[in-house]
């Protein structure tokens, strides 16, 4: 004799919540922005640097960083690059359609930990998405911090993300915003060159009293960290977000494991001293 036992629905940590696409905007052919609202009206609380598992049933699930300002709210935003099956399927989503969301996962970062400091944001490519969550949090609570500097690099002018935000940041008097592209086009009047060239153009920071958030592809991180260290920043004050392909978000599947650290729970935000100790981090 055999019998089958079924647990109540709420028992599965793999069961996503239903979220509706409230707004969508194609930034580039590869990158699209979405604002999702939770259908259950329960809202969500998340910190800068956290991520969600996004489901398209029949295709799969993928871990995606949250790019909106942290806090307790009824919606969240993501900027999604179409690189795999799930993300390509997500790009076909129209306003009003639904997705499954699990999370928020990861340690996240409480910006109060760096209150009173100079802030330096260094975002490369799609790294601007998770970095934007930190930036918006800092700008929304501008009085808590001293000088705020934002550096952003993209490959070409056509690859720039969040262009409305970029314009708004450029106009702010209470912070510095510099951006560069690796290769300009005929209309480009701004900086060209890799992001590290912006370090020489930015205002001086007080290195002992500066927190840097460096988020971008591994190659950018390596060179930007060298610049930050050369400026005199402390290893423990340089933060980054490690990208891994978390399958579960629950510290089990092993895909995000670096040595004995599950990035989905103990990360993805680490300081550079921790990343160095992990060795396989970047």
């Amino acid at each position: 004799m055999t019998m089958t036992m079924s647990n109540p629905a709420s028992a599965s940590p793999y069961l996503p919540r239903v979220a509706t696409v409230a707004e969508a905007c194609k930034f580039t052919p590869k990158e699209a922005w979405f604002r999702f609202e939770f259908a259950d009206g329960q809202g969500i609380q998340y910190a800068a640097g956290q991520f969600m598992e996004v489901s398209v049933f029949g295709v799969g699930e993928a871990p995606i960083s949250i790019c909106s300002a942290p806090g307790k709210r009824g919606d969240l935003e993501m900027c999604i690059r179409a690189v795999g099956d799930v993300t390509n399927a997500l790009h076909t989503l129209q306003v009003g359609q639904t997705v499954g969301l699990r999370g928020a996962f990861g340690n996240g970062f409480d910006m109060d930990k760096v209150a009173g400091k100079d802030l330096l944001f260094v975002a490369g490519g799609l790294g601007l998405a998770p970095c934007r969550s930190f930036i918006l949090d800092a700008l929304n609570h501008r009085e808590k911090f001293r000088n705020v500097t934002i550096l952003y690099g993209a490959r070409t002018p056509a690859d720039l993300l969040f262009t409305k935000d970029l314009e708004a940041w450029a106009q702010r008097k209470d912070s510095t915003f510099l951006m560069t592209v690796d290769r300009g086009d005929e209309n480009w009047k701004g900086n060209t060159g890799v992001i590290t060239t912006l370090f020489r153009k930015m205002p001086k920071v007080d290195p002992a009293n500066t927190a840097a958030f460096i988020i971008g592809p591994p190659i950018m991180f390596k060179f930007a960290v060298l610049e930050a260290l050369a400026m005199g920043l402390r290893k423990t004050s340089i933060y980054c977000s490690l990208e891994r392909r978390m399958k579960c978000g629950l510290g089990k599947c092993g895909h995000c494991q670096i040595r004995n650290v599950y990035v989905c729970q103990e990360g993805p935000i680490f300081n550079y001293a921790e990343v160095m100790r992990l060795r396989e981090g970047i």
């Binding site: 055999t2 019998m3 089958t4 036992m5 079924s6 647990n7 629905a9 028992a11 599965s12 793999y14 069961l15 996503p16 919540r17 239903v18 979220a19 489901s55 398209v56 049933f57 029949g58 295709v59 399927a89 359609q97 639904t98 997705v99 499954g100």
Partner: peptide, 15 residues
């Protein structure tokens, strides 16, 4: 289907 509305957890166990 594609959407998350009709998703059911399947926790199964036989003695």
């Amino acid at each position: 289907g594609r959407g998350p509305e009709n998703v059911q957890p399947q926790v199964q166990a036989k003695p």
